[in-house]
Structure formats: C-alpha cells, structure tokens
C-alpha cells in the first residue's frame, strides 16, 4: 500500500512527538483479544486478535523417533500458512516468503533449551519421542505479525495437553506405548520461559512497537527481538535497512523491556482463563 510523501512526513513527526496517528504513544500496543481452546481436534489452540491482525494457532502431537544426534530430545516444528483471506497479495505463492521468514524466526527463537525444553518431550531415549507440530494460520494481516504470532503460540502451548504415558513395553524391536485412558489425565507444558517476539521499527530518530500497516511503510529499519526474562533468544533484522551500533543497543534494551511487559500481561490473562474458555480481552 503506497503512501504519499506528505502522509509519511506526518507519521514521522508524530512519532517524534510521541503521539502516533491513532493517539498511541511509542510503546503502546493496540487492544488484543485472546481465546484458547478453540479448535476441537487439536491438543492445544489459541486465537489472537490484535486490532486488524488475526492469528489462529493449533498444536498437534505425534509420536516419532528422535534425531540420531539428539536421542533424548523431542521435536518441535513450526508451519506458517498465510491464507489468501488475509490479503489478496497472499494468493497462491505470494505469502510464501513471509511464511518462511516467520517460521524460521520462530524456529530459531525456540531452539535453545532454556526457552523450550525438548528433553521433556522424550518418551524413550533414542527410540520414541513426542513431536509437536505447531500450525499457524494467518487469517488477517494488519501489521505486526511476529508479535501476534508469538503470543498466540505461547498461549496455545500453555493450553496444550499432552496425554500421560502409563507404560512402555519393549519387546525386541517392537515398542508398545500405553497412554492413559482418561482424557483429562494430561501434562501441561512449562512455557514460562517461552520467548515473546517483539517487532521494533525505527521511524526517524525513535523506535516504535506494534506498527500499523501505514507505519510499516515509513520505517527505515526494523528488528525482531525474541526475549524472555532479560535474556534474548533470537534477534534478526527485518527488511532492508541498516542500523548503527548504538541504535542496535537501544533497540535491544527497549525490546527486552517491552517483551517482559507483554509476557506479564499474557501470563496474567492465561491464569484468568477458566476451564470453560470464555472470551477474555486485555489491553496492553
């Protein structure tokens, strides 16, 4: 969506004055709504709506053999699908680049053991492990996809129930796994340290979070920071801009701060969601 020079100047001055187009300041997020447990067939799911951005995440579990190099770790895979519902640009293979970038960033964010412990996904060392497929469906694109996706994933993982394994019978090469019969006898995944992605955009001399579509057009350079509890698990520069080293450091600090705030708000909301899965709204 192209913008005229005058509109870009207006947005630029607005960011300088800490008063953006819709009245937010540089650190404010638009109102978000989160719903968990929406998809019946998935083990865990979440639906997040951030103003015009709509993301649906579902988690499915399968039993698989672990990689030979990491016999006591499970597997985690991200698939991103930008459906043509979101923008006509995504029709056919248009959304593939964005999907690949998003999936890659998420994969590298969750790669470290501190962020997400894959060892807990192991059932039998070297033979059987849980494989988590995290499927992300982008229903509507209104800017700021990375943040919305990461929050939705965290909520979906929180909502995921892994069936408890009662017994494992090894008979030569045959391995039989017995899963507990009752549906509610499950384990939950510990997602306290799961990272939250924050997109920071540099407009003029300052940086903002949660850009809208028109603000994204005016950025000089933008960065994605995946952070949790003051530790960074992934950073990558988006787009084709370059930053000075000091700006980079500024962004890092800013990003960590915002990520902590987002994390707190999300954990609070998740704690409030009751078993009946009502619709909860929260503001950042």
């Amino acid at each position: 969506m192209p913008l005229s020079e005058a509109e870009k100047t207006f947005i630029l001055h607005g960011v300088d004055e800490n008063f953006r187009q819709d009245g937010r300041d540089r650190e404010a997020y638009r109102p978000m709504e989160l719903e968990t447990g929406t998809v019946q067939h998935a083990f865990g799911s979440a639906h997040l709506r951030l103003a015009n951005t709509d993301v649906l995440v579902a988690v499915k579990l399968e039993i698989d053999a672990p990689f030979p190099e990491t016999p006591h770790e499970g597997k985690l895979e991200f698939f991103v699908d930008c459906s043509a519902n979101a923008t006509p640009d995504f029709e056919g293979r248009g959304g593939e680049d964005l999907a690949v970038e998003l999936a890659n960033t998420l994969a590298s964010a969750y790669q470290s053991r501190q962020a997400f412990d894959l060892r807990k996904m192991c059932i039998l060392k070297g033979k059987k492990c849980w494989k988590l497929y995290v499927d992300i469906l982008i229903l509507e694109c209104g800017g700021n996809l990375f943040d919305a996706t990461s929050l939705a994933i965290k909520a979906a993982l929180h909502n995921t129930q892994i069936p408890k394994i009662k017994a494992v019978n090894i008979d030569g090469d045959n391995i039989e796994i017995e899963v507990s019969d009752s549906v509610s006898d499950c384990e939950k995944i510990n997602i306290e340290n799961a990272p939250v992605l924050v997109t920071l955009c540099k407009i003029g001399q300052h940086c903002i979070v949660d850009p809208s579509l028109s603000e994204e057009q005016c950025t000089v350079g933008s960065m994605v920071v995946a952070a949790t509890k003051n530790c960074v698990s992934t950073i990558s520069l988006l787009g084709s801009g370059s930053l000075h080293q000091d700006t980079l450091f500024q962004f890092l600090d800013f990003g960590c701060k915002i990520a902590n705030r987002l994390n707190e708000a999300l954990m609070e909301t998740l704690a409030n969601i009751s078993v009946t899965n009502e619709n909860v709204g929260f503001l950042k």
Partner: peptide, 14 residues
C-alpha cells in the same frame, strides 16, 4: 503540525 491539532486529528480518526 502542533501537538494539539495532532491530538484533535487522532481523536476525530478514532
């Protein structure tokens, strides 16, 4: 554009 007009514009937009 001065701050007060900017605020008014943002309010009108919302």
């Amino acid at each position: 554009i001065p701050r007060d007009i900017r605020e008014a514009m943002a309010r009108v937009r919302n």
